[in-house]
């Protein structure tokens, strides 16, 4: 038997307050690549990766990494949340945030040592943020904050990365830097999944993409998936049926 896929979602259905928002997603990624998760606003892109990471509960289905549930491989999977989800007034410096990426290796009672500090500094350096190590995170620009987040993910030394809109509201220089680092990760044999909303850049940046609109419309090599027909099916508001049905399921009654 061949090796299990790096990531496999099987019939994943997710509901918020009883209303399904993501229906029956079947998706497998076999090998390392830059994987874009693309779709319109409210399509459930973030929900999809939160479901994969066990942040939101599944109504149906399961998610495996290397053929195992997440609990057996924690630490090998990294996550960079949306920038808005964090309290940037929190009293930490950039280097402290990056060091948090190493905590899962330290375990109980062990303190951060010189090795971790040097490594964290190196991670900051890799995203071009070496000079900002001691800056409070609230005093960084949006792009710099995103790069610090990326450095934290690097410090974790994961093998599969999930990034939620890492390029939204980010200056051009930061975009370039982030994209370069993500490409390097792919070249090192890591799987990088990125929630992304900009179709124009998607075609040139990702090796493979998944088109999502409350369900998985299509997934595969970027050139094949980003066809006119698939895009029409993703962006034409075809989810009306799922929308209406979701409301009926939430209320526990039939649709008209």
């Amino acid at each position: 038997m061949s090796a299990p896929p790096l990531l496999e979602l099987h019939d994943v259905t997710v509901a918020y307050h009883g209303r399904p928002v993501l229906w029956h997603v079947d998706l497998a990624v076999q090998s390392p690549c830059l994987f874009g998760i693309i779709g319109p606003n409210g399509a459930g892109k973030s929900t999809l990766i939160k479901a994969a990471l066990g942040i939101v509960p599944l109504v149906e289905g399961w998610v495996h990494f290397w053929g195992k549930p997440l609990d057996q491989v924690r630490g090998r999977v990294g996550y960079v949340p949306q920038r808005e989800s964090v309290d940037w007034d929190f009293p930490v410096r950039a280097i402290d945030v990056v060091l948090m990426g190493t905590y899962h290796r330290l375990g109980w009672l062990r303190r951060v040592g010189r090795a971790e500090r040097e490594f964290a500094q190196a991670c900051l350096d890799r995203v071009g943020m070496a000079d900002f190590a001691t800056r409070q995170i609230g005093r960084l620009s949006g792009g710099q904050q995103q790069r610090v987040f990326l450095a934290r993910a690097l410090a974790q030394q994961a093998e599969i990365y999930f990034l939620d809109e890492p390029l939204a509201g980010v200056d051009a220089q930061s975009q370039q830097q982030i994209f370069r680092v993500l490409s390097e990760l792919r070249d090192e044999g890591k799987l990088v999944l990125i929630v992304h909303h900009d179709l124009r850049t998607a075609a040139s940046w990702f090796d493979r993409v998944a088109l999502v609109d409350m369900r998985l419309v299509a997934a595969g090599p970027t050139a094949d998936v980003l066809s006119r027909e698939n895009l029409a099916r993703t962006y034409s508001g075809h989810h009306e049926v799922l929308d209406e049905l979701g409301r009926a399921v939430e209320a526990g009654r039939r649709t008209p």
């Binding site: 019939d11 029956h24 079947d26 369900r215 998985l216 075809h238 049905l245 039939r254 008209p256």
Partner: peptide, 28 residues
């Protein structure tokens, strides 16, 4: 509908339909 729009394989279709069959009204 699922077969056409969600691209589920044939053997994945029955369980979702067992669930949703109780929610579809005449108009839908």
């Amino acid at each position: 509908w699922l077969g056409r729009h969600v691209g589920l394989p044939l053997d994945h279709l029955h369980p979702p339909a067992e669930w949703i069959e109780h929610y579809l009204g005449a108009e839908m």
